[in-house]
Design a protein around this nucleic acid. Structure first.
Lengths: 126, 126
DNA sequence: GCCAGGTACCTTGTGACGCATGGAACCGGG
DNA sequence: CCCGGTTCCATGCGTCACAAGGTACCTGGC
């Protein structure tokens, strides 16, 4: 997978970060398990090389807190947990995400490629 | 707006390009008008500095064709029209887009931030 | 005739982020 | 004692949206 080459990679931009927050909102996880959890969702298959820098940023920005815990087999695990600020960031993203995808959906539908997401009627073209 | 700084900018990555294709699928447009059309949609407000390199890429890749046309007032306009390959690219993107956003929606919903998009039930977690 | 302002085109440099690659440390089994 | 799985982390690269800046055309006021 060449870096930045395909469409799916671009789609992950900015989204992956908040998907991590979404996973952590359910329960704290460590990086390796996080990759597996994300892989369960279409288009969110990623690797450690992506996750670690991402988690570093989240930690630096105070959106997640970390605690070390011993593992039964292997080196100790660094668990990441959502902070209050992280929860707020996730909430804020959810709003932006909904607005954004609604806009794109409307546009695609006008072009004849849209899904019918039920009549939410949020066209908003002036 | 500092470059690459906020979330909305990241969301546009890879999407904006195909939104341009979607607009052109309705009718050929020139760059200036294109920016205005996109601005009608939430989260797709952009500028010429973004559109021109983008259109150059689309043209280089054969997804759009260009024709010059005189304007009643001002310099001549370069109209961009969708090619067959462009139409195919748009179709392919629409599929990826739907799959991807469905996945993210499910994830956000599990975290308590999701919209209810009606029961399409596409969880797909294994 | 000339200059201000709107229209329309394009280029260059910057920054962010996802990814490939690769390395280090810890553990259990053969 | 080495080998493979687990888990952590750092470095370098490529792509893309954006800001800033530049050129050319046309109209209207003075």
């Amino acid at each position: 997978m060449e870096p930045g080459g395909n469409v799916a990679t671009q789609l992950r931009r900015g989204v992956l970060e908040h998907c991590v927050l979404a996973v952590l909102a359910r329960s704290p996880e460590y990086a390796f398990e996080l990759v597996r959890r994300l892989s369960a969702f279409d288009g969110l298959v990623t690797s450690e090389g992506t996750i670690y820098p991402l988690l570093s940023r989240l930690s630096r920005d105070g959106l997640v807190a970390t605690t070390w815990q011993p593992s039964e087999a292997g080196p100790p695990r660094k668990y990441y947990d959502l902070t209050v600020a992280g929860r707020r960031a996730l909430d804020a993203f959810a709003v932006e995400w909904t607005t954004f995808t609604d806009g794109v959906d409307d546009l695609l539908q006008q072009a004849g490629n849209g899904r019918s997401r039920g009549a939410r009627g949020g066209r908003r073209e002036h």
